[in-house]
Amino acid sequence: MVKVTETMNLLSTEWEIERLPFPRPDDKTVDRRNGSHRTPPPIESQNYLNTQQAMLDQGVSKVQLTDLRVRFGEREILHGINARFIDQRITALIGPTGCGKTTLLRTLNRLNELVPGFHVEGRVELDGMDIYRDVRDVRDVRRRIGMLFQRPNPFPQSIEENIAIGLRAHHIVPRGEVHDEVERQLTEVGLWEAVKDKLSESPFGLSGGQQQLLCLARTLAVRPEVILLDEPTSSLDPVSTQRVEDLLVALKSRVSIVMVTHNVQQAARISDYIVFLYEGRVVEANTATEIFVNARNKVTEDFLTGRMG
C-alpha cells in the first residue's frame, strides 16, 4: 500500500501513467482496473455512461447536468454536457485553457446570466430541481451554490461586514448573533486570530491568501450545499494554497465541491472525481484514481502528461 502523501509527491514530479502508484488507500474502485479499458474510445465519450455509473456507485449526485448547452451570442461554448457532481465529494473540472471550464462553473449558479448574450439549454439540477426552470428565487439558489473566484474579491467593506452581509441578507442567524457568527466563520477558515483585532478595517490590507480565506468564509457563512471554485489558488502562494486545499478536504463532509483547476497535481491531491473537459465537451469523467491510472482517451492522457496546454 502506498500512502497518500507519497502519491502526491510522485504526482508532482515527472511521472508516467503506467508507473502511477495506486490505489489511494480510501478508494473502493481498485478492482475496476482491467486491460479492456486501455484502448481509448473516440472523443464523443460513449464510455461516459459507464463512468457515470462508476461515479454514482460512490454516492448521491448533488448536481446533475443533462445535455447542457451554453451559447454566448451565436457562439456555442458548451456542446451538450452530461455530468454529475456527487455530494460530499470533490470533483475537479480540468481541461485545457478555453475549453469552457469557467463557463460551465458559472452556469451552475446562474452567474452567467449577468453576461449579455448568455443562452442556456438542457438541465442543471440541484437535488433534482432544475435551477433554471423550477426556481422562483434565484438568490436562494445562489446561496445554496456558493462560489469562490479565481482571485480574491472581498467587498469594499470592513472585514466583519464582508461576512455579516451574507448572514443578514439570508437571515442565517438572528441579528443579535451576527457578530458571534462572524467569529465562528472566521475561526472555521483559520483567519480569526489574524484578523480579530482589525475586524472594522479594510480587507484590502490582508494578504492575498488571507483575502481568499475571507472570501471562503463569506461563502461558507450562508450555508451553501455546493461550492464552486474557479482556480481558487491560482493567485496564491504555496502556503495559502495548502491551507485552502486542507480546508476543502475538511469541508467535504458538509458540501459537494466542484473545483476548476489548471493544476493537474492539485486535482490529484484533493479530488475524488475528475471531469475532463475538452472543447466544450466532457471527454472523460471518472474517479480521480481511475482517470490518472487508467485514462481511456488519448486526449485525456495527453493533457494529464502535460503534452497539451
Binding site: R143, F155, P156, Q157, V222
Partner: peptide, 27 residues
C-alpha cells in the same frame, strides 16, 4: 467598478441593488 467583487455579491445571492449599495457605491 471591477466586475469581480460585483459578481462576488451576486454569487452570494445578494440582489443587484444590494450589490450596488454594498460594492459599487463604496468602491
Amino acid at each position: 467598478v471591477p466586475v469581480l467583487p460585483r459578481e462576488g455579491a451576486v454569487a452570494l445571492g445578494l440582489t443587484s441593488w444590494e450589490s450596488v449599495r454594498l460594492v459599487s457605491l463604496p468602491w
